[in-house]
Design a protein around this nucleic acid. Structure first.
Lengths: 345, 345
DNA sequence: ATAGCATTTGGAACCGGTTCCAATTATAAG
DNA sequence: CTTATAATTGGAACCGGTTCCAAATGCTAT
């Protein structure tokens, strides 16, 4: 590997001159510029990253931490973030937190510190598997962080989240608007804030409409296909017939539909199913899934840009408002005779 | 940030001594060892990565490149690879190649070079979107690479792939064994080797069994849900009734099932459907999907370990043999009266 | 031609580790 | 108590960039 000194020697100029050509700072005459460029080309020179980082104290690297949950969306989002960073010559380092982060904050803190020690200029914290106090402690020592799909009041300007409570509320309301009053649910992963919030919102909608949901019709899921399937079978066995089912995410909704269908029932004729996420496949299930569209990629882009602004004093446009969109497909049957739209019952 | 010199001063020892304590190379008396450790603790010292890399010429970083295709599996695989690297203190840098890599090798070469210039000690090339000649050229200049889901004879020891040809053959054979002779197919993305190979294998099975497949029943897909759906509708409209459908991956199989069902037909009673990949959801579709299990994570682990061996002279165990497993669920109906098992017809 | 100012240039010093050699200290043997 | 040998230690030199200052050069106006 050729160094800056090799280039200087070949071009017959001083060290500083080569550096100036490289960085573009400082003035260099066009003739020297040319000489140096040619020397760099013939030597196939590429600047050494470590040396640069050592003096600039920037690694041009940002980390993403705690991305364990969910699937397809997750991958596409990573790709999109990487694309965003690539434009500025920044690299993305992956560090999946421990799945049981919430149970062992020490272990996750350690995996976070790995990123800091690695020299990441900033870190995106994805998800809410770490307690808020822990994150605030982290933010205090290492302020270049941004939160994706998590909300912490004290550092709201670094948080990019979706109003899961409201979205959950809208789901409940939507089922009620379609005439359902016997409603079951398979929750998301309740140990995460976002899973919990959408569940609370959903319950509030029922409550505000004086719709009662017996404990037996609430099945605690964890976002997986397995639990969705298991949950649907469990709910069908209870002594509480229901006409609608709200699932904490599309994955569990899809496997619930499969379980319901396998039991000889029809979706939506016998049971309406509402999902949450709007995965790619949601348009292609049978029946196509009514769901909540999560503008995850938009959130991720803003979280990424905010972090870039923090780390490199840039001034990229950032968005904090991510509207909730209900996607109405075919998995929900309207069973009300007269339409009632008054939310306050 | 405290430096090694601060530590040396506080501990009252020389520079080299601190370095020796840090790296564990060279002998240090237990008393000095203790003094230095204490100084490091009080100063909250962490070694600077850039400085280390500068002299060691190792970045303790490996890159993963060209991971554009597919979804859920992909994400889980990344997590698993990261876990593998974490054990050795190595970080994973993500660099998604251009989606149209095959169309613009220059652009993808550039995005590969970004990783090299970044100083990655090694790079995993995922997929076959780059032509073999290009990869051989790369390998020549930068030998620390490993290929995942791609086979290039000349560097077979760096390739971790699955025999898609044979797996495709097994799929075709399986449909024939179940009595089908009017078979349609929605191919995978034929611009990738793996998509092409499974298609060729499938065709060979039909050919070896003297089963003819009209051009109208071959729909060129691209692994997406959209094309699966579109393809199924297209095939149903042809003047060639068929009883079985082979899809290039589970995603297109799932949306094809949905399209078939929406047309009022039943899977598998009217049409049997065979998938490929064994995504998580394949057990939870209706009907559950018969498919080929891709041992992707195992392949990824071996590719990662081989690369570690290349980069850091380690000697981790590596596996090159990934058996093909047909997972038989409910999406295929046996319509043969007497069972015929002779593959050579 | 020359003073006065702006532009361009060279290179020492530095970033924070590692390596290596010479010097010092400890230990064993005679 | 030497002397030989091994274990420990300090610190200069280096990795390959960037920064900054002093020196050199170019240009304009008088």
């Amino acid at each position: 590997m050729a160094t800056i000194r090799d280039v200087a020697k070949l071009a017959g100029v001083g060290l500083g001159t080569v550096s100036r050509v490289l960085s573009g700072n400082g003035s260099v005459s066009s003739k020297t510029q040319l000489k140096v460029s040619q020397a760099m080309a013939t030597l196939n020179f590429t600047p050494n990253n470590a040396a640069r980082s050592l003096v600039s104290k920037k690694s041009n690297t940002i980390g993403i931490w705690g991305t364990q949950t969910s699937g397809e969306m997750n991958r596409r989002t990573l790709t999109r973030m990487e694309a965003e960073l690539k434009e500025f010559g920044i690299h993305l380092i992956l560090a999946d937190g421990d799945l049981n982060a919430s149970k062992d904050p020490d272990a996750s803190r350690q995996s976070f510190d790995r990123l800091v020690n690695k020299g990441c200029d900033g870190i995106i914290i994805w998800g809410s598997s770490l307690p808020a106090i822990e994150i605030l402690k982290i933010e205090n020592e290492f302020p270049n962080i941004t939160l994706l799909n998590n909300k912490i009041e004290l550092i709201d300007d670094k948080c990019f989240y979706f109003d899961h409570y409201k979205a959950g509320y809208i789901c409940g309301q939507h089922l009620i608007n379609n005439g359902h009053s016997n409603i079951a649910c398979i929750t998301g992963w309740l140990e995460t804030d976002d899973g919990n919030q959408r569940h609370q919102g959903f319950l509030s909608a029922l409550n505000d409409n004086h719709v009662n949901i017996p404990k037996e019709l609430i099945f605690e899921g964890d976002y997986t296909y397995r639990k969705g399937h298991e949950g649907a079978l469990h709910l069908l066995k209870q002594n509480h017939p229901f006409t609608a089912l709200f699932c904490g995410n599309d994955q569990s909704a899809m496997s619930a539909i499969s379980a319901i269908t396998n039991q000889g029932l029809n979706v939506p004729n016998d049971i309406s199913v509402m999902g949450y996420d709007d995965m790619n496949i949601a348009s292609y299930t049978s029946p196509p899934l009514s769901t909540i569209q999560m503008p995850f990629i938009l959130m991720a882009i803003s979280a990424t840009r905010r972090l870039l602004n923090l780390c490199y004093n840039s001034n990229l446009e950032v968005n904090y408002d991510f509207p909730i969109k209900l996607i109405n497909r075919k998995s929900i049957q309207n069973i009300s005779t007269p339409i009632t739209l008054n939310p306050k019952g």
